[in-house]
Amino acid sequence: MTTKERFERIYQHKEADRVPVFDSPWAGTIAHWEREGMPKGVDWREYFDVDKVQTIGIDITPQFDERVLEETDRYIIHTTGWGVTIKEFKELDSTPEFLDFKVTTPEAWQEAKERMTVSRDRIDWKNLEENYGRWVQNGDWIEAGFWFGFDVTHSWMAGTETLLIAMIEEPEWVMDMFETYLDRCIAHFDMIWDAGYRFDSITWPDDMGYKGTTFFSNSMYRELLQKYHKRAVDWAHSKDIYARLHSCGDIMPLIPDILETGIDALNPIEIKAGMDVFGLKKQYGDRLVLHGGINAVLWDDKEAITEAIRQTVPVLKENGGYIFASDHSIPNAVSLENMRSIIETVKEVGSYS
């Protein structure tokens, strides 16, 4: 089966030849594998013979000036198109430090909103022209990368504290941001669709939890965010394609409300944060594709990760509806040998034959 054929059956909750494998290694993980023998510059998905998912991105930023403010051997401080001043360390896989946010008031938001124009120039047409035909010919799964919701608004524009307080004190402002982001996504992906470029699903990152709990209550989710999730899902379904939500953290309390939006797939199902992947499979496995759910902490321990895969995958793959991945991403401690073993084990126990 091609990746597209395999994913289509899994999304329909039918059995395929095997469970799909769709994950994302860190840059340091790729460097680690190259040091241990993977040819430099080779697509790791081809090297390990796993599924290829291609994502179409767009630019909906306010396009604020991007400038380098300071650079040393260890880090670079610069401004972003979202109006954020960020310190990024040059070590692979380091966590950036957010130093300042431009959009911290409704007034500043109005300026940013006016700059979030709808324009064909915000789409990388060259990338589509050069690669889309090959993606289709190869049978890759193609996703539209939406960018809206709680996570990207607090982390890339307004700041966590500002947004959480505003959700209580200035909910109209918050909803206007959520809605504007989504409006711009839909407008640009409508352009792409109308130009003849088709995709199989939409996806968006909206981390709504952390270890052991969510950032906000169910009532706040229903009041401020749920309708935008639903609108994105409805837009996808109107085109007969699927919708996949990425949300890190323990979002178990939100699951019933999230499912009311009609999402088709959930990722990454973060076990180490408190998610119950077996409970999700038992209760919602007939209508929710589970993507992930394999504790990333275990991946550098060959015995532990092999045991986890053998215990988990056979249960989750029943009747389709499961895509194999870590519960976050593939960390740089995972050796080439371990990754080979992981893929071999998944293909063995994830086979439907």
Rank of each mutant, 00 (worst) to 15 (best):
T203E: 02
H291W: 14
T85P: 12
L259A: 06
E91I: 09
G133K: 12
E170W: 04
D327A: 07
M220F: 05
K40S: 11
D17Q: 10
M191S: 09
T3P: 15
T95C: 09
R9K: 15
R6L: 06
L280K: 07
V334C: 01
A158S: 14
D59P: 07
F178G: 00
D301C: 00
A243D: 01
T105V: 11
W135A: 08
I30S: 14
Q54C: 13
S219M: 09
R287G: 09
N131H: 15
A31M: 13
F7T: 04
I202D: 00
V84A: 14
M208E: 04
L225F: 11
N127A: 14
N319A: 13
E270S: 05
T117R: 15
T312P: 05
G249Y: 03
F148K: 04
G350R: 01
M177H: 06
I58C: 10
A304V: 04
G209L: 00
E172V: 08
L254K: 01
L254E: 00
T312F: 12
S247Y: 01
T55C: 15
S219Y: 05
M220L: 13
V152N: 07
K317D: 02
S335T: 15
L245E: 02
F324T: 00
N127S: 13
E130G: 08
L92G: 09
D234L: 04
Q226P: 11
C185Q: 11
V42E: 15
T80R: 12
G145T: 09
L69E: 15
A273N: 04
S119K: 11
E36M: 12
F215M: 10
Q283T: 13
I165P: 14
P268G: 06
A325G: 06
F216D: 03
A187I: 11
G212E: 04
D100W: 13
P20W: 07
D276C: 11
E303G: 02
E307P: 00
K281P: 06
Y284L: 04
Y47G: 10
K90E: 08
G285W: 01
I323A: 01
D264P: 02
T79N: 10
A144T: 04
G159N: 06
H291I: 03
G81H: 09
W26P: 00
F89K: 06
I251F: 01
I342W: 09
D65T: 08
I269D: 01
K347S: 07
E8W: 03
I123Q: 05
E130N: 13
F215D: 02
E348L: 08
I255F: 03
D49Y: 06
L316S: 05
G57H: 11
S219L: 11
E344V: 02
D151I: 00
Q110N: 14
I10S: 01
E143Q: 13
F150V: 02
D183K: 10
E348I: 07
G196K: 12
L182P: 02
G274E: 02
G321P: 01
G209T: 02
I76Y: 07
D59R: 08
A16P: 00
A195K: 12
G212K: 04
R340Y: 14
R18G: 00
E97Y: 11
E170S: 08
R67K: 15
I86C: 10
D250Q: 01
I142G: 06
E107F: 07
K14L: 14
A325R: 00
A158R: 03
D121F: 04
Y181I: 05
F89L: 12
